[in-house]
Design a protein around this nucleic acid. Structure first.
Lengths: 329, 329
DNA sequence: TTGTATGCGTTATCAG
DNA sequence: CTGATAACGCATACAA
C-alpha cells in the first residue's frame, strides 16, 4: 500500500507538502505541485480514508436508516431505489454510506444509538419512512447530534431537513383524475397506517378534493396492507363508486377483491411500483421517483454537513397508469 | 465523545490497560478488569471504530458488490434480501458493511478497483451474481488481494469461497416434479443469460433429467428476460407439453403468454420470488433463501478474514408453489 | 500484572 | 513557500 510517506520520499518533499497539494491548499508553488501530482499518479496513490477521517475528525460518513417492515414486493422495490440512489450520489460526493436497518437499533436508547453511530464515525443520517411512534429517532433529531434528513416526515430544524413529494397535492391530483374520468360521487378511501406522516397528508388531500367537488367520502384505515384493503373493499365497496387508496399495495388488494366480487369500480393507488403492471387492470397512481428522492436526500445531507441549515425540500411527482406492456423487460 | 483516555483517567489506570480489558487480553487482574468495565459502562464508552482500524490495520470492513442489471421486480426483491441478510449478520459479527453497485466500478481497471477498496479500508468483498464476462472481478479474485466470497459462481481458492444452492440438483428437482405431475414428454426449456454461471448448472440439471426420463428437450435462451420468455413461449410452446424456466421472471412471462394464447402448459420457475403469487396461476418453483445465502456469505467471509482457506458452501433449496393467499399481507 | 512508548496515515499548526 | 512536529484514538511490543 503506497502511503503519503512514499509519495513524499519519491517527490523529495515533506509529507506535509504532499498533504497540502492533495487538499488544494494555497501557498504551494506550481512546480512542487506538479511534481507531487506526477508522483501521485505514477504511484497510484489514494489517500487512506480511515486515516483521513481519524486525523481530520470529519468522516463524511453517512448512514441510511431503513425500515424493513413488511417484506412485501413494494417495500423491496422502494428500498432498493432508495439505497441505490443514495449510494450512487454518495460516491459522486465522496461520501461513505452504510446501511442500517431499523431493527438493528430498535431496542436501543438514544444514548446507545448515538454512541453506536458515533463510534462508526457517522456524521449524517437519512431516515426513510419514519412514523410518529419512532420516539428514539425523534429524540435523535432533537438532540442535533447528527445532521439528519428525513424522507416523508415533516421534521425541520437547524440540523435536519425533510425531503418528500407533496403528498397532499399528489393524493388530490390522482384522486381527482380518477374521479373525473369516471364521474364518481361516492368515494371509498383506504388510508394508511395512522402513525405515518404521509397518511395524514394524503388524507388531507382526499378530504380537500371531496369538499371541493362535494363528494361523499368514506374513510377506512387500510394500514397499507394489501390484505386489509381486500377485506375493506369486500365490505364497503358496494356503497361507493370508486376506491381511492393511499398506496399501490392497497390498490392491488382492492382491485383483486373487486375482480373476485365481480363488480367494477375504478381504483387508484399511490407510489408507482412495478407490481401495478401485474394486476391485469390498469389503475391511476402517483409515481414517486424514489431514486431521485434519495439522491436529493444525500445532497441535502451534504449541504447540512457543510454547515448550512435544515429546510424543506419538495420533489415533483407524476401521475401515471402502469401497464404490463410498459414494465415487461 | 468519551475516549479510551477518559476511561483510563477515570479508572486510574493506563490507556494500555484499558485497551487490554477491552480486547480480553489475559494477564489482567480481575480487580482492574472490573474497575475498568464499570467505568466503561458508566461513561458509555464505545471504541472509535476508525481509530481501531487505523491502529490495528484490520478493518473488518466488507463490501457488498451488487449488480443492478435490469430493474425488475425480481432483482429488487433478491437484492434487498441479500443486503439485509448481510447487514444483519455483519452487525452480529461486528463487521462493517458498505454497499457498492457494479456500475460504480465498471470502467475501472483492477488496479483502480483495488486501490479504491483499499483506500476505503475494505478487506473482504462479497460478489453477487458474477458472470463469466466480469474480467475485472476475475482478476480481483486471482490477485488474492482481498478475501472474497462469490455467490452463485464456482470460484474457490485460498482467499475465495463460493456460496450457492446446488443449481444442477435444484433445476433437476423442480422440473422433475412438474413433469411427473403432468406426465410431460416434450420439454421447452428457457435458459438464462449464457454468461451466467448458474445458467450452465441449471442447464445441466434439465439435461440430466431429460436423458434419464427420455424426454424430448428443446432449449432456448431466454436471457432471464420476461419479455424474451414471452416471445419464445409464443413461438415454441405449441410443440411442447411443458415450459421449464431458469428463472421466475421468465416463468411469469411464459405463463402470461400461455394465458394470452389460451392454451395450457404447466410452467415452472426458479428463485421463489413473491411476484409468482400475482400471476393468477400457481407454478412450481425453487425457493432460494436469499437472506440466508447472504448471511452464510458473511460468515464465510469472516472465516476467510480470520485466516482460513476458501471452500465451497452449498445452501439447501426447497420446492414450493406460491399462491396469492400465501403472500398477501 | 501494569505502565511507557511507539506507530498506524493523515491533517493542521507552527517555525523557518 | 516548505518542513518539522504534534495531534487523532487506539493497539501492542517492551520495560518495569
Amino acid at each position: 500500500m503506497v502511503s503519503i510517506k512514499d509519495v513524499a520520499k519519491e517527490a523529495g518533499v515533506a509529507i506535509s507538502t504532499v498533504s497540502k497539494v492533495l487538499n488544494n491548499y494555497p501557498n504551494v508553488s506550481e512546480k512542487t505541485k506538479n511534481k507531487v501530482n506526477e508522483v501521485v499518479d505514477r504511484l497510484g496513490f489514494v489517500p487512506n480514508a480511515v486515516a483521513v477521517s481519524l486525523s481530520s475528525k470529519k468522516t463524511g460518513r453517512v448512514a441510511l436508516l431503513i425500515k424493513l417492515s413488511l417484506s412485501t414486493q413494494a417495500s423491496d422495490e422502494i428500498n432498493m431505489r432508495y439505497i441505490s440512489g443514495a449510494v450512487h450520489k454518495a460516491k459522486e460526493l465522496q461520501l461513505d454510506v452504510i446501511t442500517v436497518f431499523a431493527s438493528m437499533i430498535e431496542d436501543m436508547t438514544v444514548e446507545e444509538v448515538t454512541s453506536y453511530f458515533e463510534s462508526q464515525g457517522i456524521r449524517g443520517i437519512i431516515v426513510y419512512g419514519m412514523t410518529t411512534k419512532d420516539k428514539v429517532i425523534h429524540k435523535l433529531i432533537d438532540s442535533g447530534h447528527f445532521k439528519m434528513v428525513v424522507v416523508d416526515a415533516p421534521m425541520v430544524n437547524d440540523s435536519t431537513s425533510s425531503v418528500s413529494v407533496d403528498h397532499v397535492k399528489a393524493q388530490y391530483d390522482v384522486a381527482k383524475k380518477t374521479i373525473i374520468e369516471n364521474k364518481c360521487k361516492k368515494v371509498l378511501y383506504l388510508a394508511g397506517e395512522d402513525t405515518g406522516y404521509v397518511t395524514k397528508d394524503r388524507l388531507l388531500g382526499i378530504k380537500k378534493l371531496c369538499e371541493e367537488k362535494n363528494l361523499k367520502l368514506t374513510v377506512r384505515n387500510g394500514q397499507f396492507s394489501e390484505l386489509r384493503a381486500r377485506e375493506l373493499t369486500m365490505r364497503f365497496a358496494k356503497n361507493a363508486d370508486c376506491v381511492v387508496c393511499a398506496s399501490d399495495m392497497m390498490a392491488i388488494g382492492a382491485m383483486k377483491a373487486l375482480i373476485d366480487m365481480d363488480i367494477f369500480r375504478p381504483v387508484c393507488g399511490f407510489d408507482g411500483i412495478i407490481l401495478m403492471g401485474y394486476v391485469g387492470k390498469q389503475m391511476n397512481t402517483v409515481k414517486q421517483d424514489f431514486t431521485k428522492i434519495s439522491e436529493k436526500a444525500i445532497c441535502e445531507l451534504n449541504r447540512l454537513m457543510s454547515g448550512e441549515n435544515g429546510r424543506k425540500v419538495t420533489i415533483k411527482h407524476e401521475l401515471v397508469r402502469i401497464k404490463y406492456e410498459d414494465i415487461i423487460v
